[in-house]
Computed example of a mutant assay.
Amino acid sequence: MEELQIITPEELQKKLENGEKLELVDVREDEEVAAGMIPGAKHIRMGDIPMNLDYFDKDKEYIFICRSSHRSGNVCFYLQDQGYKVRNMIGGMLAWTGETK
């Protein structure tokens, strides 16, 4: 199995502060994201990823986020197998200290 690319919450926060345009996808459930998401993230529940593949562009890299990085890791493996460029934010929202909306 190909190794998964990761990004730490700190690295992600720096990139956002530097104004980088990133493709963030939060795969948590509705009630979880209601408590706050990283600004600019798109919400697609983990179970809805397979039917939303047309949202993803193989030329872009996507950073996946969940509560602890377990579900987002599963999504990353699934999409990586299909040829998408993905990164998992390790630690998930439990480790995120940046702003949320």
Rank of each mutant, 00 (worst) to 15 (best):
E3H: 01
L4Q: 10
Q5C: 10
Q5M: 14
I7L: 09
T8F: 10
T8E: 08
T8V: 07
P9E: 02
P9Q: 02
E10Y: 00
E11M: 09
E11V: 09
Q13Y: 14
Q13I: 14
Q13V: 12
K14H: 08
L16T: 01
E17Q: 15
N18C: 04
N18E: 15
E20G: 04
E20N: 10
E20M: 02
K21E: 15
L22V: 12
E23V: 05
E23T: 12
E23H: 14
L24H: 07
V25F: 11
V25Q: 05
V25Y: 10
V25I: 15
D26M: 04
V27T: 01
V27Y: 03
R28F: 01
R28Y: 02
R28Q: 10
D30F: 07
D30A: 15
E31Y: 09
E32I: 05
E32M: 11
V33I: 15
A34Q: 11
A35V: 04
A35F: 00
G36H: 07
G36W: 01
I38S: 08
I38Q: 04
I38V: 14
P39R: 08
G40I: 11
A41K: 09
K42M: 03
K42N: 11
H43S: 12
I44F: 02
I44P: 07
I44G: 07
R45Q: 13
M46I: 00
M46P: 00
G47M: 07
G47I: 05
G47A: 09
D48P: 10
I49S: 05
I49D: 04
I49W: 03
M51R: 13
L53E: 05
D54H: 13
F56Q: 04
F56S: 02
F56K: 05
D57M: 01
D59P: 03
E61T: 15
E61G: 01
Y62K: 04
Y62F: 11
I63W: 06
F64Q: 06
F64P: 02
F64K: 03
F64E: 06
I65M: 03
I65D: 05
I65T: 00
R67L: 03
R67N: 08
S68N: 10
S69Q: 08
S69T: 06
H70C: 00
H70S: 08
H70I: 05
H70G: 13
S72W: 03
G73N: 06
N74F: 04
N74R: 08
V75C: 02
V75F: 00
F77W: 01
F77P: 00
Y78K: 01
L79C: 10
L79V: 10
D81G: 15
D81I: 15
D81V: 11
D81Q: 15
G83R: 11
G83L: 11
Y84N: 13
Y84H: 12
K85V: 11
V86E: 07
R87K: 15
N88L: 11
N88A: 11
M89R: 03
G91I: 08
G91Y: 07
G92C: 05
A95N: 13
A95T: 08
A95E: 13
A95H: 06
W96R: 03
W96H: 01
W96M: 12
W96C: 05
T97H: 04
T100E: 09
T100C: 09
K101V: 07
